[in-house]
């Protein structure tokens, strides 16, 4: 029983991490038809910025309590700015060349982890965190690491915030309409490009937050972390439906749980394999879900 509980909470934690990556990926793809291969890099940027700040480089930030919160905020902010720069500098000049947009993000996805490992080395760095978050607590006989709860809580907060933003604000309305028909949004007199930068900023913030908290989850940061999460985030995005935040949340939980349980109860790695094959199967069964209006 305690194993099941531990696996379930760990799976949920992993799902939370996937959701933080996939929610932005899904919005970006839904609105702009850009499959952002640099999204994993944004997560890594957030993770390293948080680590850098918490390691004592940012005044006021540190590995304990409020200092750590500041470090996470700093990491998220850096990821947000990175995402906006990416959109303005690379995606925007290529609006009428969709294939090149994907290629440009592929290039960034390769270059950023390489840069990170050039600066801080290719090996994993231990991730500092408050002592309060490194312990475990008992639930139904299982010892569950507290950081899982932090991840789940953060993902839930992001989900609620995104729902409020999309449902309750004019910018959110523009994003939802743009996912459906971008040209018509401009024909109503709205500069949809501002929404593009906005969803990149939101996606970058969520991914960077995922990176910051993922550091707690894994206990370390390494340059390739984001990229290895990316393919599972793709699965979540495709499963949940492009542009759907609620769909991404459900799919993230499903993928996280399946992966944890399958990896534990069958051969190690089979869960990962199952999820990847699931991606192929889904795309083949409902290609309209993704290719409907896609270059």
């Amino acid at each position: 029983m305690s194993t099941v509980v531990l696996l379930a909470v760990t799976g949920l934690g992993l799902g939370a991490l996937y959701f933080l990556v996939a929610s932005g990926l899904s919005l970006i793809f839904g609105l702009m038809d850009v499959l952002n291969f640099a999204h994993g890099a944004l997560l890594s940027v957030g993770a390293y910025a948080t680590w850098w700040a918490a390691d004592g480089h940012l005044p006021g930030a540190g590995s304990g309590g409020p200092g750590f919160v500041l470090a996470v905020c700093f990491g998220t902010a850096v990821g947000t700015v990175a995402a906006m720069v990416l959109e303005l500098a690379l995606i925007r000049p290529l609006y009428d060349r969709p294939r090149e947009q994907v290629l440009a993000t592929v290039g960034v996805g390769l270059a950023v982890p390489a840069l990170l490992s050039a600066i801080w080395g290719p090996d994993a760095r231990p991730f500092p965190g408050p002592a309060a978050l490194s312990g475990t607590f008992g639930l139904l006989g299982a010892h569950i690491p507290v950081n899982r709860l932090v991840l789940i809580g953060a993902a839930a907060a992001v989900l609620v915030a995104l729902r409020l933003f999309l449902g309750g604000t004019r910018h959110g309305l523009v994003v939802r309409a743009g996912v459906e028909d971008r040209a018509m949004v401009t024909a109503l007199g709205i500069d949809v490009r501002r929404a593009f930068t906005l969803v990149f900023a939101i996606g970058g913030a969520a991914a960077a937050l995922g990176g910051a908290l993922g550091g707690l989850y894994y206990g370390s940061v390494d340059p390739g972390q984001g990229t290895s999460l990316l393919i599972f985030a793709f699965v979540v995005v495709v499963m949940g439906g492009m542009g759907s935040v609620a769909g991404a949340a459900l799919a993230a939980v499903g993928v996280g749980l399946v992966q944890q349980f399958a990896n534990y109860y069958t051969a190690s790695g089979l869960g990962d394999l199952a999820v990847v094959v699931l991606l192929a199967a889904l795309l083949l069964l409902k290609p309209r879900g993704i290719t409907g209006r896609l270059a």
Partner: peptide, 20 residues
């Protein structure tokens, strides 16, 4: 199998196979 879909879906199916 992969060519049953087009565009970016094809790219992702090939990616999934290779990742598997």
């Amino acid at each position: 199998v992969a060519l049953r879909v087009g565009g970016i879906a094809f790219s992702m199916v090939t990616l999934a196979f290779a990742q598997a």
